[in-house]
C-alpha cells in the first residue's frame, strides 16, 4: 500500500525541523523565536537521540515514536556530516557532543527561554544541523526530484 499518511508524517517532521532551524538561526542573529516551533522540535529530538536520557514532555506518543525511529538514522548521519564544524565551537569529544545536544534540547523544550551556555555560534551550528537533518528527510521523500529506479521486470520479480 502507498500509505500517504506515513509519508505525510515524514513531510511534517521535515517541515517542522526546518522551521526550528530557521528559528535557531534567527536566535543566533539576535531575533525572537517562535516558541511553539521550538518546543515541538525539542520534544521530537529527545525521542530521536538515544543519548538524550530525558523523557519528552509529550510523554509516550506512538506516532512520534515511529517518526523518530524513521528519522534517527538521518540524525546520526547528519551529526557525522557536521563533525568537522564541531571543532570550531570547541567540541572535541563524544561526551562534549552529547552535552552540546542536551543544551540545545533544553533550549528548544523551553521554547527559547532557557539559554544555558550557548553562544551565537552554537545556535548557528544547531541550526545548520537541523537544516541538514530536515533536508535529508525531504531528499529521501522526494528522491531529490529524480525518478526512482525500478527493478527491471523479470520472471518472479515484483514491480513496486
Amino acid at each position: 500500500m502507498a500509505d500517504l499518511l506515513q509519508t505525510a508524517r515524514l513531510f511534517e517532521v521535515g517541515t517542522r525541523l526546518q522551521t526550528a532551524a530557521a528559528n535557531l538561526m534567527s536566535v543566533a542573529q539576535g531575533g525572537k523565536p517562535d516558541s511553539n516551533a521550538l518546543k515541538w522540535a525539542g520534544d521530537f529530538l529527545l525521542r530521536v537521540d538515544w543519548n538524550s536520557n530525558a523523557m519528552p514532555k509529550g510523554g509516550v506518543d506512538g506516532g512520534l515514536a515511529v517518526s523518530a525511529t524513521s528519522a534517527r538514522p538521518k540524525f546520526y548521519a547528519s551529526l557525522v556530516r557536521i563533525g568537522p564544524k564541531l571543532g570550531q565551537v570547541g567540541i572535541r569529544s563524544e561526551e562534549q557532543v552529547y552535552d552540546f545536544l542536551r543544551s540545545i534540547y533544553g533550549f528548544l523544550q523551553s521554547g527559547g527561554s532557557q539559554v544555558l551556555d550557548l553562544s551565537a555560534d552554537h545556535f548557528k551550528l544547531a541550526s545548520e544541523f537541523l537544516h541538514i537533518l530536515s533536508q535529508s528527510i525531504m531528499v529521501d521523500l522526494s528522491n531529490n526530484g529524480l525518478p526512482r529506479r525500478r527493478s527491471v521486470l523479470a520472471l518472479g520479480e515484483f514491480v513496486a
Binding site: 500500500m1 500517504l4 499518511l5 513531510f11
Partner: peptide
C-alpha cells in the same frame, strides 16, 4: 494496490506548515 488516505494526508501536511 491501495493508495490513501488522501484527505488525512493533505491535512497533516498543511498542518505542518506554520
Amino acid at each position: 494496490s491501495l493508495t490513501g488516505e488522501f484527505v488525512e494526508a493533505y491535512r497533516t501536511e498543511i498542518a505542518s506548515m506554520a
